[in-house]
Design a protein around this nucleic acid. Structure first.
Length: 194
DNA sequence: TACGTGATCACG
DNA sequence: GTGATCACGTAA
């Protein structure tokens, strides 16, 4: 079942980042379904320095200010497309970076997109999973309740004792806010990024 | 540890 | 316009 839009429109981005673990991120382009179980996320909120929206709205981050339930995809280091889920109400610019997946459907297609012959660590990192699922900036601002890009709920939920909290990666510029334990990952899951 | 890579942002 | 910066990944 696709997650309802109300899932994304709650106000606590940290809670939603935890809740996303165990959900399934899916894409379907030209009939090719690819998906993976979300095993690592990071929360970002406009109130703290780690967030792109901290200094207000720009051309790049404007979709973060829209009502939750859409994607925010941007190019990082000139090479990698990073996929985020926009949450909260209009004007409250929060988002969750999806950092790693455990591959589920369409593994052959993912290997083809990655130009590799083995699925080993094929979706273990935020730049890699977008490439494996075929996500790029053309999907920025897209509704997460549609035919090409969505997130599904599966029966089993990750219990809180199996969730590891840690500091977010690669935001040294954020000062004290870099110490927030807003990165969440599934304990002992081999697909978590290194 | 070092660096490729190009859009973006804050200057003027 | 321009230059510094960057929510990564790979090689070494």
């Amino acid at each position: 079942m696709k997650l309802p839009i109300s899932f994304y429109q709650r106000q606590n981005v940290v809670t939603i980042a935890r809740d996303l673990l165990g959900k399934v991120l899916c894409t379907q382009f030209n009939g090719n379904l690819t998906s993976g179980i979300i095993v690592e996320t990071e929360a970002y909120s406009f109130v703290e320095r780690g967030c792109h929206a901290y200094r207000g709205m720009t051309e790049r981050n404007k979709v973060m200010f829209e009502l939750g339930g859409i994607s925010y995809v941007y190019l990082c280091y000139g090479i990698h497309h990073l996929f985020n889920v926009v949450t909260n109400r209009e004007g409250k610019a929060d988002a969750i970076l999806v950092r790693a997946l455990e591959p589920k459907n369409g593994i052959e297609m993912m290997m083809e997109r990655m130009h590799v012959k083995s699925p080993k660590r094929i979706t273990s990192g935020p730049g890699k999973l977008t490439k494996a699922l075929g996500i790029d900036r053309s999907h920025n601002g897209k509704q997460l309740f549609d035919q090409e890009l969505w997130i599904e709920e599966v029966s089993k939920k990750i219990s809180s004792k199996n969730i590891i909290e840690s500091k977010r990666i690669g935001i040294d510029y954020a000062g004290e806010d870099a110490n927030l334990l807003w990165r969440f990952s599934v304990k002992k899951n081999e697909w978590v990024s290194k």
